[in-house]
Design a protein around this nucleic acid. Structure first.
Length: 253
DNA sequence: AAGTAAGACAACCGCGGTCGC
DNA sequence: CGCGACCGCGGTTGTCTTACT
């Protein structure tokens, strides 16, 4: 390991950044022989680069029809739309953007959009965590209540049930792996990007709405949680707690 | 001014498909 | 049909530059 680029030679092949002399040799080769047969470049020009490296250099950097400069907002929108349709099929996307290479588009995507999707993903992940916490809590609570009913527990134990805020802090975050298809999040991302009327490059994925939604559900859940506890009523004649577990699961499950 | 983190981009690598022998 | 050479693709890595502390 530790092979920094530069003048690394492996089995005679040079690696790392191309020099202007190497570029010139490759350009001359293509002028004379055309594109292709990259493995013969070294033999015919004396260039100590393997065919793969030559092809890559030509396709991504030296080709005369390459468009240089920043990706335009229009191109950006095309990339977004085509990525939504094709996924990571960079060469397919590149065919719709004359002068742009798959490598360029791929790099552009990774630096400009990937992190935004990740953020969106992270938010969705957090949402899942919250959902899972809710479910765990309710299951726990339901279990406790059922046990209490079944075992005819005394009221002291009921009164020591944790309140929701405590539960929120104490509960371990456990949630299943990828219960929601990641594509859902990606789709959410695309629509938020494409529907944004302002410049795409400046827009942020509107994950906050999702967050707000889940936070609202959390609050709703708080309500249900407390409702369950607070509906602990007492049979006045009996002094034993009369628990009324929720008959149905809230609709949002 | 120096150190560091993040961004941008060029290049490499592995793998699978195609083609000619 | 099998095999090797070649090619193209997508993922990943390394380096350079810029922004920030």
């Amino acid at each position: 390991m530790g092979s920094s680029w530069g003048f690394i030679e492996e089995v005679g092949w040079r690696k790392g950044p191309w020099t202007s002399d190497e570029d010139r040799l490759l350009i001359e080769y293509v002028k004379l022989h055309g594109e292709g047969r990259w493995n013969s470049v070294a033999r015919l020009t004396g260039l100590r680069r393997n065919g793969k490296s030559c092809r890559l250099r030509w396709v991504n950097y030296l080709r005369p029809d390459l468009k240089r400069g920043q990706i335009t907002p229009h191109e950006e929108r095309i990339i977004l739309e085509l990525h939504a349709r094709w996924g990571n099929r960079w060469s397919t996307i590149a065919r719709s953007l004359p002068g742009r290479t798959d490598n360029e588009i791929k790099n552009y995507w990774r630096t400009h959009f990937k992190k935004k999707i990740k953020n969106s993903s992270d938010n969705a992940e957090k949402s899942r965590a919250r959902l899972w916490k809710r479910q765990q809590f309710q299951q726990q609570q339901q279990q406790q209540i059922n046990n209490q009913i079944n075992n005819q527990i005394d009221i002291k134990k009921v009164m020591s049930l944790p309140t929701m805020p405590q539960a929120k802090q104490e509960m371990t975050i456990l949630y299943p792996n990828n219960t929601i298809d990641q594509q859902d999040q990606v789709g959410f991302f695309y629509s938020s990007m494409l529907n944004n009327s302002t410049s795409i490059s400046q827009s942020e994925p509107s994950s906050s709405n999702e967050d707000i939604m889940w936070d609202d559900l959390w609050n709703l859940d708080d309500f249900y949680g407390h409702f369950m506890i607070n509906t602990t009523t007492y049979n006045k004649t009996n002094t034993t707690p009369c628990l009324q577990p929720m008959a149905t699961t809230p609709a949002f499950y």
